[in-house]
Amino acid sequence: MKQARIPVAIIGSGNIGTDLMIKIMRHAQYLEMGAMVGIDPASDGLARAARLGVPTTAEGIDGLLALPNFKDIRIVFDATSAGAHARHNEKLQAHGVQVIDLTPAAIGPYVVPVVNLEQHLNAPNINMVTCGGQATIPMVRAVSQVAKVHYAEIVASIASKSAGPGTRANIDEFTETTSRAIVEVGGARQGKAIIVLNPAEPPLMMRDTVYCLAEEGADENAIRASVAEMARAVQAYVPGYRLKQEVQFERITAERPLNIPGLGRLSGLKVSVFLEVEGAAHYLPAYAGNLDIMTSAALSAAERFAGRHQAQAAARGEQK
């Protein structure tokens, strides 16, 4: 018999949380909405959830814990802020709930689904890095799978209109979290992240540039193929993710090396990858690809968690 879907809750009824709710309700295979949680009773996200029949609370984490159906919720997404997440996680872990963190708090391991999700299926808390990290770290990883990467730098340019209060309040955490994840997940020896809030009108889609300095003698054709394969893997859950042009290469010679702070003067193969992320426009505008890639990555991770839970239950003969 077919198993019941796993109820999930979303903490944060802003743009990211609301878009994630709509994605779950439209596209999830193993999940269903169990609760939408906020702190503003007048928020559009809570109102929309209520209209869709989703249990809601405007009392934050404590309100979630008090909901009658909380005992059935197995996975919780946190789409609030890095500062609030520590408190939320502490309370949820006491109940054995698996937490997917969409803030830059980085309490749990960094996860980019196409790169390292399978390594962290038992983690009680996973961190989805940042929008820039979800877009660019797969490309750094694609290069590092082929050649040693001394240094990787990413520039994420997003429409100012797509940067809400949470994003603006976490700019420092964005750059620090993304820089660390470039190393820990992407495989670079050293990383740097830059975010640009573009005020252009009409708003521009998310654009990302990835620069890698790989070892001398790296195979350009192998890197090009690895990047293309990784782009296709990301497109499986973010259809609007695409390369804007062919991968660019430049040989940096020992006679004219790059001076990289912390690493010194290095030569090698400079690899430049140019990306665009168009959102699916489920709740947010299509130009808000930076938010769409976060919610899509989080949904992909949760679906994998839930599918694993279902398979384990089936193996125990707990089919419903």
Rank of each mutant, 00 (worst) to 15 (best):
E176Y: 05
S144C: 02
R224S: 08
R180S: 12
G186M: 02
R189E: 15
E246I: 02
D172N: 12
D172M: 11
V185S: 05
G191N: 03
R180K: 15
R251F: 00
G166L: 03
L258Q: 12
Q145A: 15
I223E: 04
A142H: 10
I126S: 05
I154P: 00
E215R: 01
Y211C: 03
Q119E: 15
I194G: 07
G240Q: 11
K148H: 13
R180V: 08
V183R: 10
V227K: 05
S144L: 06
L121G: 00
N122S: 14
C212H: 07
T177C: 14
A225F: 03
I158F: 00
P239G: 11
E250L: 12
T178F: 01
V146S: 04
A135R: 00
N122P: 00
T175K: 12
G217Y: 14
Y211F: 15
V129W: 03
T136A: 14
P124K: 13
I171S: 05
G132S: 06
H150I: 06
Q134T: 06
V143P: 01
M139F: 09
A123H: 01
A156K: 01
G164Q: 12
A214I: 04
G186L: 05
S179A: 14
T130L: 08
Q248W: 10
E201Q: 15
V185E: 08
V143Y: 04
G132Y: 00
I126Q: 09
R141F: 07
N170D: 15
N170F: 05
